[in-house]
Nucleic acid binder design. Structure first.
Lengths: 246, 246
DNA sequence: CAAACATTAAATGTAAGACATATGAAAATT
DNA sequence: AATTTTCATATGTCTTACATTTAATGTTTG
């Protein structure tokens, strides 16, 4: 693991890569302490700042954590679901916003994956999950809500649905799909009428999950997808119209 | 964006965070050049190494790329699907291996998500996707194959299935779910009998997709999930047995 | 003897200055 | 006019130094 070619380009990247491989392969165990920066710089025959750059790269991926002080150092980090969530979300969000992914494509992916959670969530959702969903539905029906707050509540509702499946791996995977849609959804101006429609559909979903009826939940999600897609189309059409005027 | 509290802890993390926010919020556009390291260090009132550590953090997330030379510098990077894939995969793999996720949980998540692709893939898969799947099935029926190679081919088969849905966002999301399972699958010793069974099930999936029959593909995936789960249980049981002996 | 306090050592965090190297653009030469 | 040379700029790296945090050690005192 501790080798380094003579290639004098991007030493810090190479070192980061070597350590990363050690972690992935299991040669470095969780909570194990890496050698100190001084020792690493000796091992790799580079200066301490170079080692530090490498360590910062790994810290950015939550692969290590550092601690100051006498017993400090860099430790292999047990990547938590929370950290993985947030990385997933930033990556997904940027991927969508930077690559001109169409509303349809993102929407299709999101609902296809979410529908995969529906039958599991119908079986396993707890009273807690249902309560969260009902609370978000109630919030969504408040008249004074801004569009952003409405979207945020929408995300919270859908997260409760996904978490109801009781499978943390699915929650993690879905985090990206659900949250990354929010910027796209934020572009939509929700009329009173459309909010009402969405609240109704959310209610149908919650009812189905409460009745442990996965099929009905799936159907409601399909309807919601269709409706959301329609809203998106309207917005895009209006934008095209405005562009034509200008 | 260019502010920094007096908190003298983790300056490089704060700077990275500030720039990251700028990218996410859209204040910094793709391909836009950041100020030079010297300028940044002046703006933030820190030294150049500190700025560099911050930039390396961002580079590790593929948020920026750097270029040497006269017109060089740090540029906001358009995160490609490829890069997002590989980040997804390392994060997912580590998350699973470090958090004692059970084989059942991972398996359930993977097949639930994969089944979400089935109906879309039945509609849209190209001849290319089918050819890849057939080729992998053929490879899987070769007798001399190692277990690792068998698993790798399995992953390739399932990726073709997922890609067949023609939705890059789904392919991205699924990359983690499918590839992160591989280390868990690699622990399984595949007998000739079990390989035969899996190849048969893969054949059924390919047939269903060729016939554009999403329902049949879904059923075959369900069977495959059940069978895989059974294999996993056998392995775990044998391990427990061996532990009891020792 | 024990507890509170001070000291110390080891590690990361930050700074400053220097040199190496890559690279595009301008200037000089043929 | 085309080619070569020079040069300025920016990143990549090294060296050295100091600041800060933190736990262990040593010391003093009740």
């Amino acid at each position: 693991m501790k080798i380094d070619p003579e290639n004098p380009a991007d030493l810090s990247a190479q070192i980061a890569s070597a350590i990363r491989d050690g972690i992935i392969s299991g040669a470095l165990i969780v909570d194990q302490r890496l050698p100190s920066e001084a020792e690493l710089s000796e091992q790799f025959n580079v200066s301490r700042p170079t080692v530090r750059e490498a360590l910062k790269r790994l810290a950015a991926q939550s692969l290590i954590r550092t601690q100051r002080g006498a017993t400090g150092g860099a430790f292999v980090n047990r990547i938590s679901f929370e950290e993985a969530y947030s990385q997933q979300i930033t990556t997904s969000t940027l991927l969508l916003s930077m690559n001109a992914v169409s509303f349809e494509t993102a929407c299709e992916a999101r609902y296809a994956l979410e529908r995969a959670c529906a039958p599991l969530s119908a079986k396993r959702r707890t009273a807690d999950h249902l309560a969260t969903m009902r609370a978000e539905i109630h919030r969504q029906s408040q008249p004074g809500l801004t569009d952003e707050a409405f979207c945020a509540s929408d995300v919270a509702f859908h997260r409760a649905l996904v978490d109801g499946a009781g499978n943390p791996v699915m929650s993690y995977q879905l985090a990206g799909a659900v949250e990354a849609m929010q910027p796209l959804m934020n572009m939509i101006t929700f009329t009173a009428r459309s909010r009402e429609e969405i609240v109704t559909l959310h209610g149908r979903i919650a009812d189905a999950l409460e009745a442990a009826d996965g099929t009905r939940a799936d159907a409601a999600l399909c309807d919601l997808e269709r409706y959301t897609l329609g809203l998106g189309h309207d917005v895009m059409a209006k934008r095209a119209e405005n562009r034509a005027k200008a």
